[in-house]
């Protein structure tokens, strides 16, 4: 496949933005600037970007508790996100959502979701609306390997097949459902084989390889756009951090994380490939790194200065459209 330079630059910039955002979340959380608990997706950037780079604001994604990357890949404002995660009144959700419920309807981002397996039935709804109203839009849901064992997801897979919905199910298999191995919790020999048994095209891809992942996503998205129904993609990827920030990760092998960061980094792979192929120069990538670093600095700075919600006015609003 031939890739236009601006496509490659956009992909890299988005992946780098996610990495820098997540790394900064860890820092700000440890400083006490982020309330609650936070799940970061460093290491999984290629999947988020490969899945979303061909979508526009009218297409809808449903995300997970590990959803910052999906948000950024779908075009959510990084400054608004940082404000939201810090619980500020000018955050994307006025500080009422937080990291696990971040959403931006205008960007087709139907929400992170703190309920494992909560998103796929909702993405079916977005796909059903697209099909009924003949808008040509598609829906894409993210779920981890843990979500693959939820009844809601199994119902949603069958429902999407029955109604031939334009819905791409993406399973980010990072090997761990919180602190339980995917190989332990998924009873089937292969998640992809099990997905295929629902009667839809199912593929498994190396989620560290942006290009391989993009090609698989593109096939599924194009199929959905043509009205040929849903697909399921299992993307094998690596979680660089714990389930949550602060997770001691005693369930992982000694040296595993360090090895993954050194040898299975999707950003490094991307850089190696595009420079080896002569598609992009190192300087262009370095420039993006610097611009992204400045953006994240600004996001944190603005978020820390942003006003906090006022209980007198903000606690009771936004429950209903009218009541």
């Amino acid at each position: 496949m031939n890739y236009a330079p601006d496509f490659l630059l956009r992909a890299y910039r988005t992946m780098r933005t996610i990495r820098a955002f997540e790394e900064r979340c860890v820092v700000e959380f440890e400083k006490g600037n982020i309330p609650g608990f936070v799940h970061v997706s460093a290491g999984q950037e290629a999947v988020a970007v490969a899945a979303c780079i061909d979508l526009d604001d009218k297409d809808v994604i449903a995300s997970t508790h590990r959803g910052h990357g999906h948000c950024i890949a779908k075009g959510c404002d990084v400054v608004g996100m940082m404000k939201e995660i810090m619980g500020r009144a000018t955050g994307l959700c006025k500080g009422k959502g937080g990291s696990m419920h971040i959403a931006d309807i205008d960007k087709g981002m139907l929400g992170a979701n703190a309920i494992v397996g909560g998103g796929p039935p909702l993405a079916n709804g977005a796909a059903l609306a697209a099909k009924t109203l003949k808008t040509g839009r598609i829906a894409l849901s993210f779920g981890g390997d843990g979500s693959a064992n939820q009844g809601t997801v199994l119902e949603a897979l069958n429902f999407a097949v029955v109604f031939r919905l334009p819905h791409v199910f993406v399973f980010e298999n990072n090997g761990y459902a919180e602190g339980t191995a995917a190989s332990y919790a998924i009873g089937a020999e292969s998640l992809t084989e099990r997905n295929r048994a629902f009667g839809l095209p199912a593929e498994c891809v190396d989620g560290i390889d942006f290009f391989a992942t993009y090609e698989v996503m593109k096939r599924a998205i194009d199929r959905a756009r043509r009205g040929e129904g849903p697909s399921a993609i299992e993307a094998l990827c690596v979680r660089f951090d714990g389930h949550y920030i602060g997770d001691p990760q005693r369930y992982r092998a000694k040296g595993e994380v360090e090895r993954a960061r050194a040898e299975q980094d999707c950003l490094k792979r991307f850089r190696e490939r595009v420079t080896a192929e002569g598609w992009l120069e190192e300087e262009a990538l370095d420039r993006i790194d610097a611009e992204v670093a400045a953006l994240i600095d600004r996001a944190v700075e603005e978020a820390l200065a942003a006003p906090r919600p006022d209980p007198a006015t903000d606690l009771l609003s936004d429950v209903y459209h009218s009541y």
Partner: peptide
């Protein structure tokens, strides 16, 4: 629909946010 209540309610909620 199939007998899948979560899928039914989820489809309704998702569709309601997208124009139906």
């Amino acid at each position: 629909t199939p007998i899948s209540e979560s899928a039914i309610v989820g489809a309704a909620a998702g569709a309601a946010n997208n124009g139906l």
